[in-house]
Amino acid sequence: MKKLIYPAAAVALFFASAFTVIKSQDWKIAEGYSIKFDGGDPSGEFGGLKGTISFDANDLANSRFSTSIDVASINTGNGMKNTHAKSEKWFDAAKYPTITFTSSSIAKTASGYAATGTLDMHGVQKPVTIPFTFDGSTFKGSFEVNRMDYNVNTAEPAHGSQKFKVDITVPVSK
């Protein structure tokens, strides 16, 4: 039995070290991130970014994003608009408190990478592809969202913009 102790320890160390290699690809979201949306009027940003980011440029198959933002954190720079945005008529923050993005695959592109996954907003799940770059410390991505696709105030299609450009900048640390 004693003879098995060292092989068992070696196996345990092997698997533990493999686990640390996998863990080393995890990134923590650092302060200073921004999730800005621009539809002309309104424009603004979201806060409350949480989630897990596992990204390795050399191992895209095992890379994954699972993130969420707090709908109630919306800031358009105007208190009245913020209140409207959180109301039942628009994002309904009480019923749908978060907007989530979960990637299913990440691929290399000519200009960087592209994360394909599901964007869950206002109770509607839609597949989206977010092109992004990573310089070793900051993820930067940009994509377009149409609020009508997510049933956000579909009763008033002409009230404000329908299409919004979303710019994401997320500094990370290990």
């Binding site: 603004g44 806060g47 800031n75 358009t76 720079g77 105007n78 208190g79 009245m80 913020n82 209140t83």
Partner: peptide, 17 residues
């Protein structure tokens, strides 16, 4: 002050009015 949009660095525009 009710209708103005403040810089996004101001986190509590609700209190501006």
């Amino acid at each position: 002050p009710i209708s103005i949009s403040l810089p996004l660095s101001i986190k509590t525009p609700e209190l501006f009015p």
